[in-house]
Design a binder for these strands. Sequence first.
DNA 1: GCAAGGATATCG
DNA 2: GATATCCTTGCA
Length: 214
Amino acid sequence: MAAALLGARLVHERLGVPPRIGRIVEVEAYGGPDDRASHARAGATARTAVMFGPAGVAYVYLVYGMYHCLNVVCGPAGEAGAILIRAVEPVEGIEAMRDARSTRLAGRHRRGSGPSVGGRRRRDVPDQMLASGPGRLCDAFEVDVSFTGADLCARSSPLRLEPSPPGDRTPNPVWTPRVGISYAGEPWTSLPWRLIDQGSSSISTAVHHPRQLR
DNA sequence: GCAAGGATATCG
DNA sequence: GATATCCTTGCA
């Protein structure tokens, strides 16, 4: 399932905003209650109930009280499972992504920090960094918890998945351990359930910053 | 160039 | 009390 998503398109079409399209370059697989790294490890809660439902719908949650993360529910209804979409490479609607990110950042830092937040120009962020991480991706695509339960596989959905177009660059899939789950213990921390497209420059920064070893 | 610290909803 | 994160600041 994760392998099928690599290279596929994430599309958000919304009234008044140019369509935003990203090529999926990084995903992580999460299982059911057995998987100590999965949100489903405690069974179905108000937040995670959708993980136990039918496949192909969105599960969006908030991490650290601040960032959204987009998952695709997988497996048969009754069995929990999801694929976290960690990064996409912007393909279309790049300015809309940039705008969405600036807006969210401005709102987020309005509180608490001083008036000199605008010192660094957000226009300087390179295209390939706009959605190179699960939190960044949701900022750029304006995905929040209200999308939980939405069907990602219907052509008519504003937020949806589409197959990679013919002639698209072939992904170079590489499996690695998942990120930021040291609390789960072995064997879960070492299982290579994270899949990246090795050729992409939009992989999340977690790769390059071993700080994530936690 | 880093490392450190902060923001803060949801769960155990 | 910890977290499936990211950004800014402060110091080398």
